[in-house]
């Protein structure tokens, strides 16, 4: 049953991404660092895929820009942490360095056989999306200790990639663009997760020693 006209898959997949985040957190126990970075990075992958039409090439470009942009932002934030400058000014400096790093990468790509890619608006939007995740991910380093930072970063990037792969799955997009009622199923799944009080999978590992030691 088609309820609506041809709605772009990207819109229909937004709630899917957020459901994946919720399931990974409450059922499995992997915590991403907030919703926005996951959304932004997933959609960036989606755009790279639309441009490059290849899972692996899109993955390569996505990983490259995530490492360059997020990596340079986090490094900058770490290096200037001891400077006595105001908090928001520090964020501005971080964005500046990340932008310069991205421009450098774009310049390099521009001089290759894939050079025409850099002029496509979707390419620019994809990089922009990765850039918008800077603040949250760089802040993570200072909100959490190093181990927790690495865990959250890996979870965020991992869930983003998983979400990106799902929303670029041709079969899935074929289904959701035709059968919008799948969103009702997604809603039911969300409600189940919303009231999910069972132990998270990672807690089974975390607390198993208590049960074993009581025997």
């Amino acid at each position: 049953m088609v309820l609506l006209p041809d709605v772009p898959a990207i819109v229909l997949n937004l709630p899917i991404i957020l459901t994946i985040i919720a399931v990974s957190r409450y059922v499995i126990g992997f915590k991403a660092w907030k919703n926005y970075p996951v959304l932004a990075l997933s959609l960036a992958y989606y755009l790279f895929f639309q441009l490059l039409e290849s899972t692996w090439v899109a993955l390569l470009f996505w990983a490259l820009f995530v490492i360059i942009i997020i990596g340079s932002a986090i490094t900058t934030r770490f290096l200037i942490r001891r400077l006595k400058i105001n908090y928001y000014a520090r964020i501005a400096v971080m964005y500046l360095i990340a932008t310069i790093a991205a421009l450098f990468a774009i310049a390099v790509i521009g001089n290759t056989s894939l050079g025409t890619l850099v002029t496509d608006p979707l390419f620019g939007i994809a990089i922009f999306l990765v850039g918008t995740a800077i603040d949250e991910l760089a802040t993570l380093l200072f909100k959490k200790d190093l181990q927790e930072f690495l865990r959250r970063l890996i979870s965020t990037v991992g869930i983003s990639l998983l979400s990106g792969l799902i929303i670029t799955w041709a079969w899935w997009n074929g289904v959701i663009t035709v059968h919008h009622e799948i969103l009702v199923v997604v809603l039911i799944a969300d409600l189940i997760v919303a009231f999910w009080t069972a132990i998270r999978f990672t807690e089974l590992i975390r607390f198993s020693s208590i049960i074993k030691n009581q025997r």
Partner: peptide, 23 residues
Amino acid sequence: MFGISLTEFSRKILGLNLRNITF
């Protein structure tokens, strides 16, 4: 799973989900 009973686990251990929603 992991050599422990899920029932026993659920009866004794307070997990984050239960802590947040029920308590």
